[in-house]
Amino acid sequence: MFSPEGPSLRELAVQALSSVEHGYDLLAPKFDHTPFRTPDDILEAVAAALARLGPFADGLDLCCGTGAGIDVLTRVCRRSVTGVDFSAGMLDVAGRHAHPEGPRVHLVRGDARALPFTPAFDLVVSFGAFGHFLPRELPGLFRQVHSVLRPGGGFAFPVSAPPRPTSAWFWILLGFDTAMRVRNAVWRPPFVMYYRAFRLGSVLDELERAGFGTELHALPEFGRRADGSPRARLVVARRLS
Rank of each mutant, 00 (worst) to 15 (best):
S147Q: 02
L219G: 04
T166F: 12
A210M: 06
S229M: 08
T34E: 14
F176C: 12
H106G: 09
L173A: 00
A210C: 06
L27P: 12
L12P: 04
A16I: 03
Q144V: 15
S241G: 12
R78T: 06
V81P: 03
E137C: 12
R188A: 11
L27W: 08
G59I: 00
T118S: 12
L134D: 14
D111S: 11
A68T: 07
V186N: 04
N184W: 07
L62T: 04
S19F: 03
R181I: 08
T82Y: 04
G152C: 03
G6D: 07
R10D: 15
P165T: 08
A156D: 13
G211L: 13
T34P: 15
F56Y: 05
F130T: 02
A51M: 12
P139C: 10
A98P: 10
S202H: 09
A98N: 10
R79Q: 13
A16S: 01
V182S: 10
D177M: 02
F222P: 05
G102A: 06
R10G: 07
F222E: 13
E44T: 01
P158I: 06
F155C: 11
V81R: 00
F191K: 06
E21G: 12
R78K: 09
V186A: 06
F117I: 02
L134R: 02
S160C: 11
G95T: 10
R136A: 14
R78H: 11
R164L: 13
A179G: 11
E221Y: 07
Y195N: 11
E5M: 07
A232V: 12
A45R: 02
T166Q: 09
G228H: 07
R224V: 15
L123Q: 06
V145S: 12
A45I: 04
W171V: 01
Q144R: 10
L134A: 08
A49T: 09
V236D: 15
T118K: 13
S18P: 01
P158V: 03
F212R: 00
W169S: 01
A16W: 00
V124N: 15
G65W: 01
R109S: 08
A13T: 05
H217P: 04
R209C: 05
E208G: 10
A112L: 00
